Simulated assay, not measured.
Amino acid sequence: MTTAFPILLPILGYLCGSLPFSIWVTRYVKKVDVRDAGSGHATTTNTIRQAGFGWGALVFALDLAKGFIPTYLALQIGQPYIAAITAAFAVAGHCWPVFAQFRGGMGLATTGGALLAINLLAFLVCFGLLLLLVLTVRHSARASVFAGVLATPALWLLNIRDISMWAALGMGAVIAVRFLIDWNRKYRELWLDRENDVKKT
């Protein structure tokens, strides 16, 4: 293996993350751009609103795979710290995709896929933290910002100090920055806010 090859893995992660499946699926099914309605983001929940639950489930699985595959590949070739960077780049690609004018999703599913590739327990802890914050804060964007910031300390406190902690640090930073765009968004519901909700105040 050349020394240059591991450096290419984060680029692969970003390109995988940039595959805009929600845009492609809604364009195929409904002939619309998923970003033109609902939340305005290329997400699973927005796909469900516009194309139905089945198509949304497909997008969710594909978005998980965007994080899982490049991260798993980096781990398999023995590059754990490169895997953490690759995971963060995959999430960044999902949020700001080069193949969709840098207007993508919010990164949660891709983050979940990357964590599943590294450590199932870390995935469960981070998912539980996000769920707890959503139920406590009752505002999904703000809860996601807090989850992005708190994921790494939570893993450290629970003595999960493998590469998943460092991956959570990078991905959490991306998630926190990305969700700031919806900090003042008004939600009628927690995750499936409706199209006629006010996007921003």
Rank of each mutant, 00 (worst) to 15 (best):
M1R: 09
M1I: 09
T2C: 03
T3D: 13
P6T: 09
L8A: 14
L8V: 08
P10T: 12
I11W: 13
Y14G: 02
Y14S: 04
G17P: 08
S18P: 00
P20K: 11
P20V: 09
F21E: 06
F21V: 10
F21T: 13
S22H: 00
V25D: 05
R27F: 03
K30L: 04
V32D: 07
V32W: 00
G38V: 04
G38W: 00
S39I: 07
H41E: 09
T43A: 03
T45D: 08
T45V: 15
F53E: 08
G54W: 11
W55Y: 12
L58V: 15
V59M: 02
V59H: 04
F60W: 15
A65T: 10
G67L: 10
Y72G: 01
A74F: 02
Q76D: 04
Q79E: 15
P80I: 08
Y81R: 06
I82W: 10
I82E: 03
T86G: 03
A88K: 02
F89Q: 00
F89V: 04
V91I: 13
V91N: 04
A92W: 09
C95Q: 03
C95R: 01
W96G: 09
V98T: 10
F99Q: 05
Q101W: 11
Q101R: 14
F102E: 05
F102Q: 06
T110A: 13
G112Y: 08
A114C: 10
L116I: 11
L116T: 04
I118P: 01
I118T: 12
L120D: 11
F123W: 14
V125Q: 06
C126T: 08
F127W: 11
L129F: 07
L130N: 12
L131V: 14
L131T: 15
L132F: 13
L132H: 01
V134Y: 05
V134A: 10
T136R: 12
V137T: 11
H139I: 10
A143N: 06
S144M: 07
V145N: 02
F146D: 01
L150F: 13
L150G: 03
A154F: 15
W156Y: 14
L157S: 12
L158N: 10
N159T: 14
I163E: 13
M165N: 02
L169F: 15
G170F: 07
V174D: 01
A176V: 06
F179V: 04
F179W: 14
W183L: 12
K186Y: 09
K186N: 12
K186D: 11
K186M: 10
L190F: 09
L190Y: 09
L192P: 00
E195K: 03
N196C: 00
N196H: 13
V198Y: 02
K200F: 07
K200T: 14
